[in-house]
């Protein structure tokens, strides 16, 4: 496919980004550059100085909602992309309400408990909707440990499945970016096989 054909196809689709931190902000930017039609950006947090170590924000955006800051940055890249923002903390009810019309969901939460909630909510409510998770990406090096696997009919997981964040094993830009871009890459691959 030519880049024009790829962009035309992707322009028909909507992707939800659940969490606009290290994974979500970088995956959203990659998808925006690739030509996705619409992004639904969900997060409840504000941009903090330490977020700039790995998340797609700028220092003059500290203190603003991550969703709004990310929307602003994406529109600076391409203002034809349709964006919708929700400044909320997702629970199962919100998942059902917000994600019923999107074509694909990218899980980009920080906390394992939220990942678990979203995975269960997706499997129970939207078993046919492609869902791409990130699981394990703290630290640096150890590139070979990062993999992508299919865990259910429509559930895909990218990560090293091992490296939990901690004081001594922080999430860092390169490895978080690798997994975020793996998620975006897989989302493209899945959407390019789907028809509208």
């Amino acid at each position: 496919m030519t880049v024009a054909q790829i962009r035309k196809h992707l322009s028909q689709f909507t992707i939800a980004i659940a969490g606009c931190g290290g994974l979500g902000s970088n995956a959203a930017v990659a998808l925006a550059r690739a030509g996705i039609g619409k992004l639904l950006l969900v997060d409840f947090d504000l941009v903090e100085p330490s977020n700039l170590y790995r998340q797609y924000f700028f220092c003059d955006q500290i203190g603003t909602f991550k969703t709004d800051a990310l929307a602003e940055n994406i529109h600076r890249i391409d203002n034809s992309i349709e964006l919708e923002t929700k400044n909320i903390k997702l629970d199962e009810l919100a998942v059902i309400q917000l994600f019923s019309d999107v074509d694909l969901v990218i899980e980009a939460f920080d906390q394992a408990a939220e990942k678990q909630m979203l995975l269960e909510a997706m499997l129970v409510n939207f078993p046919e909707k492609p869902f791409i998770m990130g699981n394990g990406m703290a630290g640096y090096g150890n590139f070979e440990a990062i993999k992508q696997l299919q865990w259910d009919k429509q559930v895909y997981i990218c990560g090293d499945f091992t490296n939990e964040i901690s004081e001594d094993n922080p999430p860092l830009a390169p490895r978080v970016g690798i997994v975020a871009n793996m998620q975006a890459n897989l989302a493209m691959e899945l959407l390019l096989k789907m028809s509208k």
Binding site: G19, K115, Q116, F161, N163, E164, I165, V179
Partner: peptide, 10 residues
């Protein structure tokens, strides 16, 4: 039986 652990970070 499949058991997968979920890891914080993202």
């Amino acid at each position: 039986v499949e058991v997968m652990h979920l890891i914080s970070g993202g």
